[in-house]
Design a protein around this nucleic acid. Structure first.
Lengths: 320, 320
DNA sequence: CTGTTAGCGCATTCAC
DNA sequence: GTGAATGCGCTAACAG
C-alpha cells in the first residue's frame, strides 16, 4: 500500500520512505500495472477515439485538438482507425469497450445497428463528430458537410461558373463525402443549374492519382465543364496536376476546388480553392465537452445532450 | 465460468447454453472487461507501437504492415505518437508499459537513457525500426538512412549534378533526418565535392511551406546551386512549388529530390525524384518477427536478437 | 459440458 | 504516515 501511494501523487508519504521506494523502482525498472489499477479503482484513464483514417491530416488535427483539451486531465487518447467502414467501426467500438474507456468519440453519425446499440448501452459519454446526424446517439460536435459543399457551389456560381462538376468516390462508404455530393446537387438545383456533372471514381477516400483520373473522365464526358469540385483536397490536387500534364490552364480553362484545406492546397501552384473546416476545433471542443460529461458521470449527475456546431468557410485561392 | 467460456471461442459449450447466454449478452449490451481478463490470464493481447507522427504516410504504411502481419494472431496495435521527441517517447514507453503490452515496436534507435532502460527491463520483445542503431536494444528492422541519402547523392552525381545542396530541419530532433544529412555530407566528400550547401530551416519535421522557404534561402545563399536534396518529399514539394512561383525551371535550372516516395512525388508535375523506402515491409517484417518473439516468450525460450535490413532505392523521376 | 476455488496486482477503506 | 483486510471482474486449473 505504501508503494502504491508513493507512485501516485498527492498522497502523504514520508520523504525518506518515498526516496527508498523510488530508488528500488528505478533499480528494478518497475512499472505499475494499470489493468490491475483500473480494475480496482474503476478508472481506466483513457478515452476511445475512432477516426476513419490514420493518414489524413484533417483527422490528425482533430486528434491534436482532443489531446490538447485533455492535457492535464489524466486522460489519454486511444485511437482506432475505421478505414471509412462502419463495419470496422462496429468491431472497434466493441474492442474499445472491452477496455472500458471513460468516454468514446466517433467520427460521423452513421453506424451499424449493433454499433449504435453498443454506443447507446455503453454507459459512458458518447460524442459523434464531423457531422450533424439526424438522430444523434447523444452529444455532437460537427457541421453539415452538405451545407459546406453548398457554400462552395454558391461561391463558384458568384464567380461566374455555371458548368460545375463534382468528383468523388464510387460509394457512400465515406458518408461525409456522400453528404458533400448531396450538397453539390442541392445547391446546383437551387441555383437553377439542372445539368449536374458527377464523376464517381475509386473507392473512398479517393487518392491524388484517382482525382487525376476522375478529372480525365470528367472532361472527356463533358468537354464543356468549367469547374470541378473535388470531394477532398487530395483528389483536387490530383485533378490539378492532371490538368497541368494535359496543358489545360487552371483556372482559365477549368477551375478546381477541393475540400478540407490541407496544407497541399495552400502550397501547390496554383494554390487550390477549398473549404476550410475547423478540424482542430472539432477535437478541442469535443475534448472540453468530454471532460464535462465525464465529470458529470463521476458525480452521478449526467449532463444533458449537447450539439455543438463548428464553423466552415470557403477559402478563395488561385485555382478558381 | 460458463459465460466466460461462451464468450471466447473454441470452448466446449452446449449450443443451448451458449444461445441463452448470447441472448442475454445482446439484450444487456454486455461487453467483457478485458482489464480483468488480462489481469487473470496474463495476456493483454496488444502490442505497443511508437511512431514519430500521426500524420505521415510513411509511418502509416509501416503501421499497416504491422497490422497485416498481426492479422489473425489476436494481437492488436496500440499506437503512440512521439512527435519526433525522445522525451515524449520516454513518457510513452512508460505509459505503454503500464498497460503491459506483449511486445513493443519503436521508431529509431535513439532514446533517452531512462527510455532505453525501460525498454531493456521491460521483459518483452523490443523492436527498433526505420534505422540501424549502433547499439540495438534487441531486435532491429530497418535500413541506414545515411546510406540511402548517399545513394541519392551518387545518383545525382551520375546525372551530372555537382553543386548539390541539402535542405533539412534545424535540429537533430528528427534523427533519421539528421542521418540523411550525414549521408549527404559523406557522399559529397567521397565524390570530392567539398563545397556542401546545407540549409537548416524549421523544426523537424519540416513542412511543405518550410521546404519552400528553405529553397528560397538556398538559392539566395548559393545562386549557383544545381540540385537540392530535401530531407523528405513534403519539403521537396514545397521547394518545387517555390521554384514554380519564381518561374525557376525544374529540373532545367535546378533539380529537386526528396525522400520517402510519398504519393505527392509521383503525382506532382513535374514528378519528384526520391528515395523509396519499404515502409510497409518494415511493418510487415516487424510484425512477423514480433510473432516469433512473443511465441518464444510464451514458450519460455526467448529467440536470439535479430537484425533485418530492409531495401531502399532511388526512384528516378522528372524533377532531377 | 458445467461448476468450484483461487488468485491476477492493484486501490479503497479503515485501523492504528 | 503506514499497514491490513478486502474486492474489482475475470480466467486457470481442476473436479465432477
Amino acid at each position: 500500500m505504501t508503494v502504491s501511494r508513493a507512485l501516485r501523487d498527492g498522497a502523504s508519504i514520508a520523504a525518506e520512505t518515498r526516496d527508498k521506494i523510488m530508488k528500488a523502482v528505478e533499480q528494478l525498472g518497475y512499472v505499475l500495472d494499470q489493468s490491475a489499477g483500473s480494475l480496482s479503482s474503476k478508472r481506466t484513464g483513457f478515452v476511445a477515439v475512432l477516426v476513419p483514417s490514420i493518414n489524413n491530416s484533417n483527422f490528425a488535427d482533430t486528434a491534436r485538438g482532443l489531446t490538447d483539451a485533455l492535457q492535464g486531465s489524466g486522460l489519454q487518447l486511444l485511437l482506432g482507425y475505421t478505414d471509412y467502414l462502419i463495419e470496422k467501426e462496429e468491431e472497434l467500438i466493441e474492442s474499445m469497450l472491452r477496455r472500458r474507456p471513460e468516454a468514446i468519440v466517433v467520427t460521423g453519425g452513421k453506424h451499424t445497428p449493433r454499433g449504435r446499440k453498443l454506443l447507446e448501452k455503453a454507459g459512458i459519454p458518447v460524442i459523434e463528430t464531423w457531422d450533424l446526424p439526424p438522430k444523434a446517439v447523444r452529444h455532437v460536435v460537427g457541421f453539415s458537410n452538405a451545407e459546406a459543399a453548398e457554400a462552395l457551389v454558391r461561391y463558384l456560381h458568384e464567380k461566374g461558373y455555371r458548368k460545375i462538376g463534382f468528383i468523388g468516390g464510387t460509394s457512400n462508404r465515406d458518408t461525409r463525402g456522400a453528404d458533400r455530393r448531396l450538397g453539390y446537387e442541392r445547391a446546383m438545383a437551387a441555383l437553377g443549374l439542372m445539368d449536374t456533372r458527377i464523376i464517381s471514381f475509386g473507392t473512398p477516400p479517393i487518392s491524388m492519382k484517382q482525382g487525376g483520373e476522375a478529372l480525365a473522365q470528367l472532361i472527356e464526358q463533358w468537354p464543356d465543364v468549367e469547374a470541378a469540385i473535388c470531394v477532398s483536397d487530395l483528389s483536387a490536387f490530383g485533378a490539378l496536376t492532371e490538368c497541368q500534364r494535359r496543358k489545360i490552364p487552371v483556372p482559365n480553362r477549368i477551375a478546381i476546388a477541393g475540400f478540407g484545406d490541407f496544407e497541399i492546397s495552400s502550397c501547390s501552384h496554383p494554390s487550390i480553392t477549398t473549404v476550410g473546416v475547423n478540424c482542430y476545433d472539432i477535437g478541442r471542443r469535443s475534448g472540453e465537452l468530454l471532460l464535462r460529461a465525464i465529470e458529470g458521470e463521476r458525480a452521478r449527475r449526467p449532463i444533458a445532450a449537447e450539439t455543438i456546431m463548428t464553423q466552415y468557410s470557403v477559402i478563395a485561392r488561385d485555382s478558381a
